[in-house]
Design a protein around this nucleic acid. Structure first.
Lengths: 240, 240
DNA sequence: TATTATTGTCTCACATTAAGACAATAATAT
DNA sequence: ATATTATTGTCTTAATGTGAGACAATAATA
């Protein structure tokens, strides 16, 4: 959203919401925004302009609301049962941002939202909030705070999709730094899928995929054998 | 769509389109409608009412346009890049149906469509077209005729999704009659996934799933051993 | 009664996976 | 120096799953 909000510029009653996943401290985190003067959190979301595709809209909205660019977003579901709660919330949102409700009656209708998710390197991403949000926070996707609209459901559904995709695509590597240890990779898989793996078998499986490149050793200063660092081998099949 | 079309009743610029799969004669078929006075085909689609959820809308639209009821529809993707072609097509559609373009200018905008797919028993389903369509037809999804809007892309994407889902969920059984032979089941899998399977190994795999119940023998009158008939065992995990 | 096309099942080789075992290593303690 | 310790990389064995061929059983026809 921006200051030029108007009934002509955007497709009415259609929004996009982004679930940005990051991995830190053995937790799968989601990037949340805190709207001004509210006591709940929301996903970065916004409207779809008339002149752009829905995928483009998701990119732009994420950029405008968090300053994140070049994030690979994957559409995963449409949420279309948002009830009256959404309308009341939106009305208060306008008031809280000193916008005249009369000018934006077209905003006060039931919304259909297209959900997108992305996987980012937590250690690199530095979001910057826009004027509608007073702060951002990375929250454990399994312990979300009070969420506005139906954003809790959207985040949970995004997690389900991520779990499904982790088997097929090799999507998980985007959540790690450039280089990582086998332990970090295992911890990531365990966190996302919420199941433990055997250290030896996990290592074999990952190495047999033929997509990891061993680069160097990581000397942590701990009293034990130093683990290798790996990186995702840039091959013909990128797997995203 | 119905005769009460009006800018207030529906969410503007948002539609649903249904890809109805049926299995017949070793082909995976899709139910297509032929709009009056056009030389292309379309998927059964329509608008989302203000008062209903998107999933509900898909159910209703399918019912209104084909008279099919109680079909389990699965949302699979949003198509939001429909270009100007859609607008021109829509204008002609209004003219061809004796509707005044001036009254429906709100329809002449870029559309975002939510795609749904369903699997039905070809031998049972008997569609009836509405007043916008002059006929329906079951077409091989791999040899679609000239399609309007971006409906070819929607149907192809639906097939991709179905192929992905066939591994996870046991979704395929909806495409067969109540009882079926192992051969029919194998043919269905081969058609959807477009790969041949070994008769013996396929049978073993399916039986080991523990979800098939052997009911009786099918005497075809052919000069060979009669195959068993199976049915989908209604268990705690239904597969849908 | 022999023939034929198909079906249901078995077997063997091979690949994949689960689980345990053990040597290698980098620090610390003695 | 040497032993100790926690962790890592890899190997081994058994169990399980899969690909491919073989064969008996069956229901009609010749």
């Amino acid at each position: 959203m921006d200051a030029r909000l108007g009934g002509e510029m955007y497709i009415p009653q259609l929004s996009v919401d982004c679930v940005i996943f990051g991995f830190h401290d053995h937790q799968l985190k989601v990037l949340l925004l805190k709207p001004r003067k509210y006591d709940f959190w929301t996903l970065p979301g916004g409207l779809v302009a008339q002149t752009e595709g829905v995928d483009e809209a998701a990119q732009r909205v994420l950029r405008e609301r968090t300053s994140l660019t070049d994030i690979y977003l994957e559409q995963f579901r449409v949420f279309g049962d948002a009830g009256r709660a959404t309308i009341d919330t939106m009305k208060k949102f306008l008031e809280n941002n000193d916008l005249d409700v009369a000018d934006f009656s077209w905003l006060l209708k039931r919304y259909v939202s297209v959900g997108y998710y992305a996987l980012v390197d937590f250690s690199v991403i530095k979001p910057v909030t826009d004027r509608f949000s007073e702060m951002y926070e990375w929250c454990d996707v399994r312990q979300l705070p009070e969420m506005g609209f139906d954003h809790r459901e959207i985040a949970e559904k995004a997690l389900e999709t991520l779990q499904l995709m982790l088997d097929h695509k090799l999507v998980g590597f985007n959540l790690l730094s450039e280089t990582f240890t086998m332990n970090e990779l295992q911890s990531l898989y365990e966190t996302i899928l919420n199941t433990p793996f055997r250290r030896n078998n996990f290592q074999r499986k990952m190495l047999n995929l033929g997509i990891l490149e061993r680069v160097e050793k990581l000397y942590t200063g701990a009293a034990n054998k130093a683990p290798y660092l790996y990186k995702f081998k840039a091959g013909p099949a990128s797997g995203n």
